[in-house]
Design a protein around this nucleic acid. Structure first.
Length: 562
RNA sequence: UGGGGCGUAGCCAAGCGGUAAGGCAACGGGUUUUGGUCCCGUGAUCCCAGGUUCGAAUCCUGGCGCCCCAGCCA
C-alpha cells in the first residue's frame, strides 16, 4: 500500500480502500481508471481533483489511467478544447501513454449494441417529441406513462433505427429509448433516451453520423471496452449507476467495470462550473479562459501556480462523499510551500518612493552580494547594484509611524537588505502632503547589513537602485468574488469583486530581472511570488503576482482597524 | 407525500465497537538581514433523542438538517 502524503490514513480514502480490497481478493489483477472529460470547455481545478485521483490510483496500484474524451454531443464540442485539455493534463504532470481514447472511437460498436438491445426487446424507437417525452416521464412523486410507441415490434424498430442512422429523419423526430420501466422510482430508469438525431458534424467523425449516443449509452460501455475496472465519477451520477449497470447487464460487453462516486470540489471565492466559467468569459468579466483570476488550469498556470502545488492540494483535500467548500487559503498555502522551495529571491519595488542617501558620494555605485534562496544553499548568490538614489516601497515609510511600525520614519534607522543601515533625516512632500523624497544618511560600517558594534534595527527593507532599475508592469490579483460562496444569493455577477485585478505600471526591478525566463517563478522579497505574463514583450515586462507572502503586519493592521 | 446520497472543530478530513489522527485557518511564543520560511504551543465527545453493550462517532430505532435527480447535456 502506498500513501502519497502525510495526511492520508493507512487505508487511504474510501476509493483506494475499495480498489485495494478488489486487488487483494483477486477481483481484478490491476486497477484501470480513466479521466473522461467532455471537450466542451477548459479544465479547472475541480477536474484536477479527478485527474489526480484517477492517475494517482493507477500509479499506486500498478495499473493504468486512460484519457478518454466523452465526445458524444457534437453540438457543444470542439477540437480546440481537445487540445487544450491534453495540454492541461500533461502540464499537471500526468501521462496517459498510449491510452488516448474517444467515445467516438466506439460509435460503430455502440450502434451494434443498440441493435442488440432492440433485437432483445430492450429498446424501441419513439416518435414522441421532446416535450411529449417529458410529459410522459411523470414527476418525482408520480410514475410516468408508457409511450404509444413502446410496443412496436422488433422489425419495425430495427427498420426505423436503421433509417435514423441513414439520415432520413430530422433532428428530434425520433429517439431510441431503453425499454425499462416507466414507473421506476429512479427517473433515470423510465425508458431513458439512448440515441438522438443530431445532424451536426463531429470534431472527430465528421459527417459519418447523424445519430449520437447519449452519455448514459456511451460511458459505461466505453469503460467496458477499455477494460476499465473502476469508473470514478462525481456524486451527481449516483442516480445513473443503476442504468450504468442495467446496460452492462444487457449487452455483450467484454468486461465489467463498476462505478464509484465521490464529491466534486468546491473552492471558496470562486466557481467551478464550466457553464459559469464560460459565462464569465463570454460576457467579458475576465479576459479569457486563461485569465489569471480563473480557477482553470490554464488560468492558474498563467498566474504562476506550480503543478506540484495543485497535486499537493489534491492530496490534502481528501476524498469523500460529503459536499464541502474547501478554503482557498489551503490552495494558496500549497502554492507558497512549493514556491518557497524553488523560487529565487529578487528585489523589486512595486510602489516606488525615492530615497536619497545624502552622505553617499554622487555618481558612485557598488555591487553588493545577495543570497538567491535561503531555502536552497545550492542556489548561490548574485550581485545587486547600490547607489545614492534608491527606491523603497511607499508602505515602508510613515511620517508619523503607528505603534509597532518597524520601518522607516523620521529619525529612525532601518536596514536595507544586503546593503546598509540608513537613518531618515528629512522628508520632502508634495502639496497634498504625500512624501516625494526621503533624505537619509547611511552608515558605511554596516555594509552587507550587519553592524560591527552589534546594534540592532527592527526593520529590513527591500530596495532598488534608481540608476540601475528596470521598469515593469505588475498585475496583482485578488479573489474573483467577494464572498466565499458566490452566487449563493442567486446573483453571481453581483458578487464579482471589481478590484480583483490591480495593475501597477511604475514598478522598479533589480537589473538581474531583465533576463527572467518565461516560466521561471521568482520571489520578490517581502512581497510575494511572481512570474512573467505572456503579455511581456522585449520592450515591456509584465509580471503576475502568483500569491503574496503571508503578511502578519498587514493582518495586525487590519485587526487594529476593525 | 418518490428515489439516491451525506451529517466528526471556522474549513477540509481520519476513524471500520475499546475510550476523537492530521492539514488549513485563527491565536500565543521562539529563531530570523524577508513582519517570509522554520520550530513550539492552544481547540471537538462526533446533528438530535432513545436503545443494544462492560464499553458506541462507530451497531439498532426514530427524528432533524443539507445535497442531487423530472435534458433528445455530461
Amino acid at each position: 500500500m502506498t500513501t502519497t502524503n502525510s495526511d492520508s490514513a493507512p487505508g487511504g480514502d474510501f476509493i483506494r480502500q475499495i480498489i485495494g480490497d478488489d486487488l487483494r481478493t483477486g477481483r481484478h489483477g490491476g486497477a484501470v481508471t480513466r479521466f473522461p472529460p467532455e471537450p466542451n470547455g477548459y479544465l479547472h481545478i475541480g477536474h484536477a481533483k479527478s485527474i489526480c485521483l484517477n492517475f494517482g490510483v493507477a500509479a499506486e496500484f500498478s495499473g493504468r489511467c486512460h484519457l478518454r474524451f466523452d465526445d458524444t454531443n457534437p453540438t457543444k464540442e470542439e477540437q480546440e478544447y481537445i487540445e487544450a485539455i491534453m495540454a492541461d493534463v500533461r502540464w499537471l504532470g500526468f501521462d496517459w501513454g498510449a491510452h488516448l481514447y474517444f467515445a467516438s472511437d466506439y460509435f460503430e460498436t455502440l450502434y451494434e449494441w443498440a441493435v442488440h438491445l432492440i433485437e432483445a426487446g430492450h429498446a424501441y424507437v419513439d416518435d414522441l417529441t421532446a416535450e411529449e417525452i417529458r410529459d410522459h416521464r411523470g414527476t418525482l412523486t408520480a410514475p410516468g406513462t408508457d409511450s404509444p410507441y413502446r410496443e412496436r415490434d422488433v422489425a419495425e424498430n430495427l427498420d426505423l433505427f436503421g433509417r435514423m442512422r441513414t439520415g432520413e429523419f430530422a433532428d428530434g423526430a425520433r429517439v431510441l429509448r431503453a425499454r425499462i420501466d416507466m414507473a421506476a422510482a429512479n427517473i433515470n430508469l423510465r425508458d431513458p433516451v439512448l440515441y438522438r438525431i443530431l445532424h451536426s458534424p463531429h470534431p472527430r467523425t465528421g459527417d459519418d453520423w447523424c445519430i449520437y449516443p447519449t452519455y448514459d449509452f456511451a460511458h459505461g460501455q466505453s469503460d467496458a471496452i477499455e477494460h476499465v475496472t473502476h469508473s470514478l465519477c462525481t456524486l451527481e451520477f449516483e442516480d445513473h449507476r443503476p442504468l450504468y449497470d442495467w446496460l452492462l447487464d444487457h449487452l455483450p460487453v467484454p468486461s465489467r467495470p463498476r462505478q464509484y462516486e465521490f464529491a466534486r470540489l468546491n473552492l471558496s471565492y470562486t466557481v467551478l462550473s464550466k457553464r459559469l466559467l464560460m459565462k464569465l468569459v463570454d460576457e467579458g468579466h475576465v479576459r479569457g479562459w486563461d485569465d489569471p483570476r480563473m480557477p482553470t488550469l490554464s488560468g492558474l498556470r498563467r498566474r504562476g501556480f506550480p503543478p506540484e502545488a495543485i497535486r499537493d492540494f489534491a492530496g490534502r483535500i481528501g476524498m469523500a462523499k460529503r459536499d464541502s467548500l474547501v478554503d482557498m487559503a489551503l490552495l494558496e498555502h500549497c502554492v507558497r510551500l512549493q514556491l518557497n522551495r524553488e523560487a529565487p529571491r529578487r528585489m523589486a519595488v512595486l510602489r516606488p518612493l525615492k530615497v536619497v542617501i545624502e552622505n553617499y558620494p554622487e555618481g558612485q555605485s557598488e555591487m553588493l552580494d545577495a543570497i538567491n534562496n535561503p531555502e536552497d544553499a545550492g542556489a548561490g548568490s548574485r550581485e545587486v547594484p547600490f547607489g545614492r538614489d534608491l527606491y523603497i516601497e511607499r508602505d515602508d515609510f510613515m511620517e508619523e509611524p503607528v505603534r509597532k511600525f518597524h520601518r522607516l520614519a523620521p529619525g529612525k534607522e532601518v536596514r536595507l537588505r544586503y546593503a546598509y543601515f540608513i537613518t531618515c533625516q528629512s522628508v520632502e512632500k508634495d502639496q497634498t502632503g504625500a512624501p516625494t523624497v526621503i533624505r537619509c544618511t547611511y552608515d558605511p560600517a554596516t555594509r552587507g547589513g550587519d553592524a560591527p558594534d552589534g546594534r540592532k534595527v527592527k526593520g529590513t527593507l527591500h530596495w532598488v537602485s534608481a540608476a540601475h532599475a528596470a521598469s515593469a508592469e505588475v498585475r496583482l490579483y485578488g479573489h474573483l468574488f467577494t464572498r466565499p460562496d458566490p452566487g449563493a444569493d442567486g446573483d453571481l455577477l453581483a458578487d464579482l469583486d471589481p478590484n480583483s485585478l490591480e495593475t501597477l505600471t511604475e514598478c522598479r526591478l533589480e537589473p538581474s530581472l531583465a533576463d527572467l525566463a518565461p516560466g521561471q517563478p521568482v520571489q520578490f522579497e517581502r512581497l510575494g511570488y511572481f512570474r512573467l505574463d505572456p503579455d511581456t514583450t522585449t520592450a515591456h515586462q509584465v509580471l503576475n503576482r502568483t500569491v503574496p507572502l503571508r503578511d502578519s503586519w498587514a493582518r495586525t493592521q487590519a485587526r487594529a482597524k476593525a
